[in-house]
Write a protein that binds this DNA or RNA. Structure first.
Length: 514
RNA sequence: GGCGCCGUAGCCAAGUGGCUAAGGCAGCGGAUUGCAAAUCCGCCAUCGUGGGUUCGACUCCCACCGGCGCCUCCA
């Protein structure tokens, strides 16, 4: 039974979608005015995994992530750079999409743009005026917070605590807490025609309009970073619920924010065991435009998207996570265990791990329960994995079970001595396949290990390198046969120095980089 | 000041009112190996501090200390 933590109630609640078997998720996406940094990627990675798991659990899931391509920051940046806003937005949207692709985030169904939702936004705004929840003031339209019963129920604030007069427009508002639905355009600003004159949407209204357009008046999950809870989400609720007279979303899920030490941005450098006191003294804080942080695409030069994905999912989504390159390196080391097993699987089975077909839905489990200890252990760990995920998407705990699964698989290969071809039987191969399949199936729900990592493609090295390695390995094998270990070790040591690792196995010697 | 979060081994990180407190990284010992690498086995925590509730708390309550977020169109 899946349980989800709902910010509205501050408790974990049983998950019951509005329409049986279907789930609609809306996630607040980026304002595309600058290249995205790692903080922007946390939400997409988490909700991509949430969707995968829900789909695996049997739901028909629709995931929507909006792209804000009209906004004050966008206008400011386009003026600063002397580039049309639409062009800037297009560039930054491409950057964002590339980053998502690198992370393996491909479960998002719709990316509505603000500029493409203008009719709905205007319509929404007009309805709010008609219903008396909003008022026009010299070309602006404001939502009247005082008219909205229950305002503040998400962030648990009273209206009196929600002052903040924006920038200079306070005198047009009836109350300080009122917020803009529509902003009149200054002469040099991009604008869209409206019943109130040329202007652009306020920050919050697009989400209300888009979510209704794509998911309906009441949908299942609304997600976003913790920092958006107030005022953004609070205002979305006010707009949508006053307009529709019914709940906007059943579950509000807020992810913790990525934090960064002063280390962020320092690429490369020494990474020998960092001195103990070093980390403690670092200033930790939220990643934001003011603190600055490197564009995500630059981080991708150092770490694979999958490493970053693994890193993000290794912590529970509601908790803050500290970014550090050292951490990422450690994650890489951990992931190697999986990648090595996948190669091992291929050696033993003669077929590619990444080609194993896995069930898309949990009810398609086809696990023989014949009481074999290995299979029983695999089943136990698989069940634990599901329990973790069912408990408010505890991806950290689930990943722990994944490690247990690889251990079990490696142990089985060891115990059965499957590196030696003569020990392979259809029975033990079959069991190994079943176990590996389960690992792949579960990891897929987190979006992990779906495709081979870049490095291990083998084709990355040219033909000459391959031939030369073959030669060296052959020479070394010859030396070993003659018990000339000095020469054999010299070859291996020299190769280690240049970043090539040799591994001797029953079937021969393998080499790999790094 | 208001609202809220967090403090589990050297580091990261799950979890739980009583059963061996997951897992990862690092480290140590062992099996394996000509030696390695990889893999496997084993070792490595009384859960910030002080009270309280309870037959029993790391888990619930209170206080304190320490770290952090929002209250500013920052995911």
């Amino acid at each position: 039974m899946l349980r989800v933590y709902n910010t509205l109630s501050r408790t974990k609640e049983p998950f019951e979608p509005v329409h049986e078997g279907k789930v609609g998720i809306y996630l607040c996406g980026p304002t595309v005015y600058k290249p995205s940094h790692i903080g922007h990627m946390v939400g997409p990675v988490i909700f991509d995994a949430v969707k995968r798991y829900l789909a695996y659990s049997g739901y028909d899931v629709t995931l929507v992530v909006n792209v804000t391509d009209v906004d004050d920051k966008l206008i400011a940046e386009s003026q600063r750079r002397g580039v049309p806003m639409a062009q800037l937005a297009a560039e930054m949207t491409t950057d964002y999409m590339n980053n998502l692709e690198a992370l393996g985030v491909d479960a998002i169904d719709h990316f509505p743009r603000c500029t493409e939702t203008m009719d709905e936004i205007i319509e929404f705004t007009r309805t709010l005026i008609e219903k008396g929840f909003a008022y026009e003031a010299r070309g602006d339209v404001y939502f009247e917070v005082g008219k909205c019963p229950g305002y503040g129920k998400l962030s648990h604030r009273g209206i009196e605590a929600t002052q903040g007069d924006g920038g200079g427009m306070a005198e047009r508002k009836r109350a300080g807490a009122d917020f803009a639905l529509w902003k009149s355009a200054k002469p040099d600003e991009p604008s869209w025609p409206s019943p109130w004159g040329p202007g652009r949407p306020g920050w919050h209204i697009e989400c209300s309009a888009m979510s209704r357009k794509l998911l309906g008046e009441t949908f299942d999950v609304h997600g976003g970073g913790l920092d958006l809870m107030f005022p953004h989400h609070e205002n979305e609720i006010a707009q949508s619920e006053c307009c529709h007279g019914r709940p906007m979303a059943r579950y509000w899920m807020h992810n913790g924010l990525m934090q960064a030490g002063s280390e962020v941005g320092k690429v490369g450098g020494r990474h020998t065991r960092a001195a103990e006191g070093d980390l403690a003294s670092q200033e930790i804080g939220k990643i934001s435009k003011s603190k600055g942080s490197e564009p995500f695409r630059d981080l991708l030069k150092q770490f694979s998207g999958e490493t970053i994905r693994f890193f993000v999912l290794s912590t529970h989504y509601r908790r803050p996570i500290d970014f550090s390159e050292q951490r990422l390196r450690e994650v890489e080391t951990g992931m190697d265990t999986f990648h090595r097993f996948f190669k091992r699987f291929e050696r033993v089975m003669g077929c590619n791990y990444y080609n194993i077909e896995t069930p898309k839905r949990i009810n398609e489990w086809d696990f023989p329960r014949d009481g074999h200890p290995f299979l029983l252990a695999v089943t136990k760990r698989s069940a634990n994995f599901l329990s973790c995920m069912d408990d408010d998407f505890n991806t950290g705990g689930a990943i722990g079970e994944l490690f247990e699964l690889v251990r079990l698989l490696n142990k089985y290969v060891d115990d059965e001595n499957l590196e030696e071809p003569e020990n392979r039987t259809s029975d033990n191969l079959q069991k190994l396949r079943i176990g590996a399949k389960r690992l792949r199936e579960l990891a897929s729900t987190l979006g992990l290990f779906r495709n081979p990592p870049q490095e291990s493609s083998g084709s990355g090295d040219d033909e000459l390198t391959g031939k030369l390695m073959e030669l060296l390995i052959e020479l070394r094998a010859e030396s070993r046969r003659k018990k000339d270990f000095a020469t054999a070790d010299q070859i291996r040591n020299r190769l280690t120095e240049i970043g090539v690792v040799l591994e001797d196995r029953p079937g021969g010697t393998d080499w790999s980089r790094k």
